[in-house]
Design a protein around this nucleic acid. Structure first.
Lengths: 230, 230
DNA sequence: GTGCGTGCATCTGTATGCAAATTCCAATGG
DNA sequence: CCATTGGAATTTGCATACAGATGCACGCAC
């Protein structure tokens, strides 16, 4: 219990003991993705060990895994830091995201089961309520679910993995996307085009609509990023 | 020097001391990708530590990283094993590969510099020699370089990462691809179509040719896989 | 002969100590 | 006043020790 390694780094609250490496990976990944930790912020092993009440060994393993996931950056003998990508690489991720979404939309149009199509339609329909209420946060959660349905609908596990991972890596850079005025309603309309095409099993149209939709998101987010840090 | 951890696991030769974790990751990844270690084979920490002449700590970190890369599988309190995927997941990777190659070919047709196009043309032209000689091994090396040129030509770092990683994960399952009779010449002709389209900057045609090419590879490899293990 | 339980051997998960590398700060010289 | 360098403090990288978990084999009962 009384881990002598705990020299009170007191940065944020201390997590309960008995944490496994995988839990730490999830916790830290969450902090990065939700923006609780900003790109460039240091992740020093000792402090993290204190926060999770474990020794440095499992922390090191977690950091290496996060590094392989592309969420943190490690140089030999330096602190790990939350991954901070260049503008060029960021742009390449947004472009890749658009391509992946295009593929998912096309495959979803071709492969979604009847139940999946029905669920997609219902979920999209319900979201109009959030648009009218102007509920950014809730709409962001809905948006994630909506896109995840498209990723699943493609019925391709590897593509699902790639698109999910890319999305996670992009997350820190597009948290403000629904704050821009009018973006909520626009997003809803773009979803509408995608849903309509998928329900019609019109693969080409669904692909086009999804690509357009994601390109818009990347524009909005780029604005946000450049506003925050040259 | 005399690491007491070395209790002579004597499975393969012992690697020189002073190995870093990243070197181990590369070495083990290589062994998996080249097929020196077969899917399902166990990677016991103690033996690996002996082979690389280090303690288990860095080995564990390497294994966790390889796990995040999708090359090995780890369950709690069990040995890590070389990733062995289900037929369904394998199929999804081949399909994803085809989609990624299609994107790369399209973007390459649009974005390759004059120098890149020239290099692609020359490299492809030279490979006819290998086809006539029936040199499987050398053609396989050429093939890797050829495709890597397409990945680079897309000028998108994130897509490059995804396609490279997917290719690495597929490698253990398609080593015999050029052993099938006639596959060498067929591959050359398919490359020809891709190169021609790219030189003409015909994005749609390049995409179509690349997709077709990779679909053929996946068919050939699937045959190989199912022949080797039901 | 087969099924189940117990104990041992093996291997993984984590804590801790030490050496090497890096960073930070202050003192010194220009 | 700014640049540079020396060294102390911090931090990473790794080895090792130990505790807990898993799996296997042997033996016993049925």
């Amino acid at each position: 219990m009384a881990n002598p390694c705990v020299k009170q780094p007191r940065r944020r609250e201390i997590i309960r003991a008995g944490t496994t490496v995988d839990e730490m990976v999830r916790a830290v990944a969450d902090m990065i993705v939700t923006g609780e930790m900003r790109p460039g912020e240091k992740l020093d092993e000792f402090s993290l060990a204190g926060r999770f009440d474990v020794s440095r060994t499992p922390v090191r393993e977690a950091l290496r895994q996060l590094c392989a996931m592309g969420l943190v950056d490690r140089q030999p003998n330096r602190s790990a830091v939350v991954m901070n990508v260049t503008g060029e690489y960021l742009a390449s991720m947004f472009e890749a995201m658009a391509e992946l979404e295009r593929i998912c939309a096309r495959l979803s149009a071709e492969r979604m089961t009847v139940d999946e199509r029905r669920a997609l339609e219902k979920m999209h329909g319900d979201s109009i309520r959030l648009v009218h209420a102007g509920a950014d946060e809730d709409y962001a959660a809905h948006n994630l679910e909506f896109h995840t349905m498209l990723y699943r609908g493609a019925h391709n596990d590897h593509i699902f993995e790639m698109v999910t991972q890319t999305r996670a890596r992009l997350a820190p850079f597009r948290r403000a996307q629904f704050r821009l005025p009018g973006r909520l309603a626009k997003s809803y309309q773009e979803h509408q085009s995608i849903v309509t095409a998928i329900l019609r099993a019109d693969a080409e149209e669904a692909a086009k609509a999804a690509y357009w939709h994601v390109s818009n998101v990347s524009d909005a987010s780029t604005v946000f990023v450049s506003r925050n840090k040259g």
